[in-house]
Simulated assay, not measured.
Amino acid sequence: MTAISDAFLKFWESLPISLKALIRYRVLRTIGKTVEEIIEHNPRSVYRVLVDAMGRHNADLIINMFYDWLLRSGRRVDLKEVNEFLGRAMAEAV
């Protein structure tokens, strides 16, 4: 795993339980895998999975929440880098 995927797992764990339960349910029902499995085994598909499970607007919201969380955590990272790593750039090119 990379620094971004490790950070995304920590971000995921920091989400309120109600939001995490909603996302977990939608992703598991749509994809058949847990969010943790997706982050661990195929982090470049996170954005596409979120779009399929919750819609583009909600997926964008989660990715932007993650980016804000990174900045608040003192990590210096570019939003473009986060988008590329989580597959947002690839999904938008399709």
Results as ranks from 00 to 15, higher is better:
M1I: 09
A3I: 13
A3F: 11
A3N: 11
I4N: 05
I4W: 02
I4V: 12
I4E: 07
S5P: 04
D6C: 09
D6F: 10
D6W: 08
K10R: 15
K10H: 10
F11C: 04
F11N: 01
S14V: 05
L15Q: 13
I17V: 11
S18T: 12
L19D: 13
K20F: 06
K20W: 03
A21Q: 11
L22M: 08
L22C: 05
R26H: 11
R26Y: 10
R26F: 08
L28G: 05
L28P: 01
R29G: 00
T30L: 06
I31S: 05
I31C: 05
K33P: 04
K33F: 11
T34Y: 07
T34K: 06
E36W: 03
I39M: 07
I39P: 02
I39A: 01
E40N: 10
E40W: 02
H41T: 13
N42Y: 07
N42R: 13
N42E: 15
S45A: 15
S45V: 08
V46W: 04
V49N: 04
L50R: 05
D52Q: 13
A53W: 01
A53N: 00
A53K: 01
M54C: 11
G55T: 08
G55H: 05
R56W: 03
R56V: 06
H57Q: 14
H57S: 12
H57K: 15
N58I: 14
N58W: 13
I62W: 02
I63P: 01
I63R: 14
M65K: 12
Y67F: 15
Y67L: 08
L70M: 14
L71P: 01
R72M: 13
G74I: 03
G74H: 04
G74M: 05
R76S: 15
V77H: 09
V77M: 05
V77D: 04
L79M: 12
L79C: 03
K80P: 00
E81D: 14
V82Y: 04
N83K: 12
L86E: 02
L86Q: 06
G87R: 03
G87F: 03
A89T: 14
M90P: 00
A93H: 07
A93G: 09
V94P: 00
